[in-house]
Design a protein around this nucleic acid. Structure first.
Lengths: 341, 341
DNA sequence: GCAGCAAGGGTAAACGTTTACCCTCAACAA
DNA sequence: TTGTTGAGGGTAAACGTTTACCCTTGCTGC
């Protein structure tokens, strides 16, 4: 426990710094930095070799703090999810993390609970962290968001578009087409008056799906009566589905299928039906197609959204030198049919 | 686009620095720092007020980079999860994030895929980030882990204990007691020869559960024959359950209940049974009791693990001045009975 | 009258990087 | 000979904090 720390000594259990590497390689700090950052024409092959060896021997890694301070930018990418308990968000987060890592970036995951206050709190924190980019998994309108839009930090919106600017960077599927696909499939299978259960229409994705479905049925000559379009004001998707199914039963509604704007909503509705005195068996449609569906919901036809590839798209948008704004990555979807039970 | 940047000017769209605050409040940088860090007896009430006002006006937040560099420690807490797609891990991560935030810490979530190489990669990265602590959601043995154990960074193991040191900091339930609870409940309900499906025994949690169940049945005079204890070498819990159920059918095994060491395993087994020609209805037990169970698995009795409170426990361990190692937080569990269908 | 102390606050070093700028040397052209 | 150029590499400033150390002032106790 003696007080030895002579500035350039190899450092006991400490993490090696660039100075240690420089000393060991017999060059200046600047040279080490240049070698590590691949600045050409600034070091002979021999010097490069010496530096690399010193780095390996000391198991050196540049300090993030030092780097961030100097370049006024960190390697952190914030992912602000509206609800981490939602398996969909978790899936996107997981794929994003992998893709970011390949670029040497680090994902910071936050749960905004769809709360503007909390979202702002995180945005402030991430500004203090000098985050490289901010990814929204279900953004909500908020003052800080307005303030940061147009700022230097790239803002990327996944699934749900920027509530304040429909042209912001976006990764997701073509929700209008997906809605049409579901309607087309249902119509082709003889469905004529489905009930439509949707999440809050604040989300651009939900809105697009609902509109496309309603319009498709109307265009086919089978308009969906407003009484069959439900969006109970519950907080969770599961509860929304459950409540809607109960409403339908209470009103003695007549419908020949259930179309839900999300799988979890479908789970909720299905649960109510199963619990009811005389469970009926009718086609149920959802969106997302969580991997768990094959195991727990073989009764659910769902639009498969390739969440596993979302991360790659997000990472690409971050890496690009975003020349002229307005970028979007529209990924392919596919309706997966399941109808046993 | 003129090149104005006179060191202390209010900074255009830039984030305000402590120097800006000091200038605005008419005090030195040191004073601002002391006020913000609550150092007593170093500023008059009036000065404190002026500083706070300047902070508010500039919407100032200390730069994480500057802080980290100076104090050789960041506010990042790494959470290394074995598998983010597992809803259980996601639930723990979500609660941890909330608890950490209350302490002004930031969670960094990583997915190690149960791979020692990847876990080491993350450990290295987090050392470079000077992480405040590292939380393992399912740790696996690895060289870097051995190296960091005993180092200055607190290592906290959740659910699964440190594979290299059973006395490391731990948050989880009493798995032995949980296993006994399941066995007791099953025995009390007339179950005499259950099949036991388990995940890889590398996990201390799984091992404890399996042993407790086997011993309990043996003690009750109804030993479980080895042929009814299965642990197929699949990668995913779902696949393990599915494969095990198939094995049982193939061998024409005789069992009156299914006990699985995880809910997802139960999902897999249940799926196989449902798909089979003549689905049988028999009690199924699991562990975890994911919130989704109420909605998608009303047939599953499961040990409810209070994942929502895990985060708080983790945060407490991090905050504590861990005087004398060997700390653990054993949280209460409860068997939730479901047996419709 | 003065030593001692506490309150209040400023100065400057240090943390680990990156990079603008400078220097030297050799090669080469005029 | 004298410039010019390019490679190779060192010096030092700057990024935003925290904190050890110093200084001044007013008060207390003797």
């Amino acid at each position: 426990m003696t007080m030895r720390r002579t500035a350039l000594k190899p450092a006991d259990a400490q993490q090696a710094s660039i100075a240690n590497v420089a000393e060991r390689a017999g060059v200046s700090i600047a040279t080490v930095s240049r070698v590590l950052n691949g600045i050409a024409n600034k070091a002979s092959a021999e010097t490069v070799a010496r530096v690399r060896q010193a780095v390996a021997e000391l198991d050196y890694r540049p300090s993030s703090a030092g780097k961030s301070l100097r370049q006024r930018q960190s390697r952190l990418v914030a992912v602000l999810a509206a609800n981490l308990a939602n398996p969909t968000m978790a899936a996107i987060a997981a794929s994003t993390e992998v893709a970011l890592r390949q670029q040497g970036l680090v994902m910071v995951l936050c749960d905004t609970h769809d709360d503007p206050k909390l979202q702002d709190e995180y945005l402030r924190e991430m500004r203090a962290q000098q985050a490289r980019a901010i990814v929204f998994l279900g953004a909500v309108a908020s003052p800080m968001l307005d303030l940061m839009r147009g700022g230097p930090t790239p803002l990327i919106f996944v699934n749900r578009r920027d509530p304040g600017d429909p042209n912001g960077d976006f990764v997701g599927i073509d929700n209008v087409q997906a809605g049409r696909d579901v309607a087309t499939h249902a119509l082709a299978h003889g469905i004529r008056h489905p009930a439509l259960i949707h999440a809050p229409l604040a989300s651009s994705a939900t809105r697009a799906r609902v509109e496309a479905i309603v319009e498709s049925f109307a265009a086919a000559g089978h308009p969906i009566p407003p009484s069959l379009v439900l969006g109970p004001a519950e907080k969770e998707h599961l509860a929304i589905g459950y409540a809607a199914a109960r409403l339908l039963q209470r009103d003695g509604a007549d419908y020949d299928a259930l179309i839900c704007t999300g799988d979890l909503i479908a789970f909720g509705a299905h649960r109510f039906i199963e619990e009811s005195a005389r469970p009926v068996s009718l086609p149920i449609y959802g969106f997302d197609d969580n991997p768990l569906n094959d195991w727990v919901a073989p009764w659910l036809s769902s639009v498969l959204i390739p969440y596993g590839t979302f991360g790659q798209a997000v990472a690409e948008l971050i890496a690009e030198d975003r020349e002229g704004g307005d970028r979007e990555r529209v990924l392919p979807h596919k309706l997966v049919e399941r109808r046993r039970s």
